[in-house]
Nucleic acid binder design. Structure first.
Lengths: 209, 209
DNA sequence: CGCAAGGTTGGACTAAAGTCCAATTTTCGG
DNA sequence: CCGAAAATTGGACTTTAGTCCAACCTTGCG
């Protein structure tokens, strides 16, 4: 049923904390995987694996915030819950500004942590869904030839075939051919659908002078 | 030039703080307006006035977080910078989750506060711009008759006039009339533009069975 | 060199959309 | 009940878009 049961990645340099959290999560039917250092997580994490990350802030080597930054840099948007014993407000604010989903302080009530984790898993789920759709659209976009892509951008701008032809310096007939092939490749049958997909993918129309 | 110079609203129950901040902001060519209590701000604030809000957390009566919540409830999205002497992490996290743009602790370095304020004013500016565009679109949408609105939603779904006609149980000719008037009222000349506007305004297509 | 892919164009239509002018029919509030 | 707004339909076209089949360049690569 679930080829990839959502995982709760836990990074903490305190082994007793890892053990305690593992026990707690297991008893809550969650699937914890532990790492003793941020570097280890960074090296071994597979971004395709659904889940969330529970992260201590204060750790030797890379600290939690640096790990967050490293993940952002490499385009990994796994939801992060910070968990710290010696944090301060500026630290929590920085983490939240960079997109952390929560920032909890130790000692944490089990229910609070579990609630945050469940919320993070839900967020990850919908993020992944959107991601997958986006990947599909991008893939289709990548199959377009240069000309087809140009025509697409003019269509998004709402131009008539006639106008596009003039802009590109070719006859209208050719536009129709490119346009037809483009629609076919994008898997849509109407301009409305096409625009919808392109808005999702962030494809912008050419600006009409 | 600027009929509404952006204002920095400051709410704090400590008059000496208000005075100090006012002096600081004035010297930075900003335009501060002070309030001694959250209630006073809530009663007197005009949401059309551009600016941002600097807010102490701990105050008698409504506290800062409650004021934030009250503003959210009444749909006012002015950027809020919290400024507090006795805050804690959960408080800052709650504030950030609800959309605060920053959460600073006293004593605050002047530059830090000014930097946060400038960022908030910029955010307010672009928020207002988007807001204004949205209001225009909503206004045009409101001028549509029931039928025109129905036709719009079918057009967004990419349906042909023929199909729309069948769905609505009327002849295609009539669809053309409604469609033409709808496009006219929305101020667009192509389906691409129409879809673009509607995505901005959150107008969804009818779901095709 | 020769082939494949991309780009271009023609011809000949079919279908879909939009337009102008007119004319009923409903609907709804005052 | 009456009038205005909304909804509906016809007729007669003009424009646009899309389709099928075919053909002709150009370019890059094995």
């Amino acid at each position: 049923m679930t080829p990839h049961p959502p995982t709760v990645f836990i990074v903490d340099d305190d082994l007793s904390v890892l053990k305690g959290l593992t026990r707690l999560l297991r008893s809550a039917k969650l699937n914890p995987v532990t790492f003793a250092s941020p570097q280890e997580f960074l090296d071994r994490h597979d971004p395709t694996q659904p889940g969330c990350l529970v992260l201590d802030v204060a750790m030797p080597g890379l600290d939690g915030l640096q790990l967050q930054q490293a993940l952002i840099t490499r385009g990994c948007e796994i939801p992060i819950i910070f968990l710290t014993g010696h944090g301060d407000i500026p630290m929590s604010v920085r983490a939240m500004k960079r997109g952390a989903i929560d920032f909890l302080t130790k000692p944490v009530r089990d229910e609070d942590l579990l609630k945050a984790i469940r919320a993070a898993l839900v967020a990850d789920q919908s993020r992944r869904q959107a991601q997958a759709e986006l990947a599909g659209i991008r893939h289709r976009l990548a199959t377009l030839t240069t000309r087809e892509r140009e025509v697409l951008e003019h269509v998004l701008a709402g131009q008539l075939n006639k106008q596009i032809a003039e802009d590109l310096g070719i006859v209208e007939k050719t536009i129709k051919v490119h346009r037809g092939r483009m629609m076919e490749k994008m898997g849509v049958t109407s301009v409305a659908e096409l625009v919808h997909l392109c808005e999702l993918a962030g494809v912008k129309a050419i600006s009409i002078r």
